[in-house]
Amino acid sequence: MSKIFVFVEGHGSELKKGSLELLNAAKQSGREVIAGLVGPGTKALAAKAGQNGAKTVFVCDDAGLGHYNPDTFTAAVSTMVKESGADVVLASSSVMARDLFPRVAARLDSGVASDCTVLELSASGVKVRKPLYSGKCTAEVEFVNSPVRFVLMRPNQLPVGAADAAATATVREFPLPAGSGKITCKEMVKGASNKTDLTEANAIVSGGRGMQNAENFKILDDLANTLGATVGASRAVADAGWVPHSMQVGQTGKTVAPSLYIAAGISGAIQHLAGMSGSKVIVAINKDPDAPIFQKSTYGIVGDLFEVIPKLTEEFKKALHK
């Protein structure tokens, strides 16, 4: 039976949810799972990868990998994949993985199926589907002449399994690869938010023009903090400078697919819908009953968001025992 390589990323002392989803999917397939971790401090996460399904964990834990560098990371991960002998490689579509894996795949003369939302693993096969044209249709991505099959999965599409505290993995360490020296990361500048990125968030609270000004986003922050959600925004709001562009959801912003998407004061221009229609449950709160957003929503509230949002925060606090 062929092996599966899962690229695992950590967030502090935990594994990212997207990585856990893929470890579980790989484990459920019954195939041998090799996890790969890259960066300083990742060795401490190896045990967690083992408890979540990896039989072997490859780590490249080196201070020289403290900042992401496409050059050295490509070298490190390509070596790991080759050494693993896996013919399927799974990675969650994090900002890093999206940059890294097309290049790793190319180095191994292989194809990559990116932004996938459906993954089915069998004893030797892998079947994936992805949305196209902003979710207006979907298609299967079939691997044809690809020695290794690289799959980048959107987070929040698959279940996370229960960790087995007794399961242990063999850890193998890899040295820091030599880089070309043509590119170096000089600095990492922290963003305004230390929350989960929009593209990986399980819940998102987004505000549109109906928020009226930048200060009013405070009520969305409160709701988001209660839910453990990340705050997003429509293009109109980002273009007006109320929030940074990094918070924009939509065609020229981020494509998101959380379990819960709450749109407050967003009318639902097609460019916005293009970026969030993959969300499982969509809630629209808008004072205009004819706003197009309602047609894409699971639940709709016609009302004044300045009244509804604080009440919602209150109710969620009660329901979540906070």
Partner: peptide, 16 residues
């Protein structure tokens, strides 16, 4: 400058 999670940025120097 490359935008990463939560509006954070990685700043790269590139030769050639």
């Amino acid at each position: 400058e490359r935008e990463i999670e939560g509006g954070a940025r990685e700043i790269f120097e590139v030769q050639g």
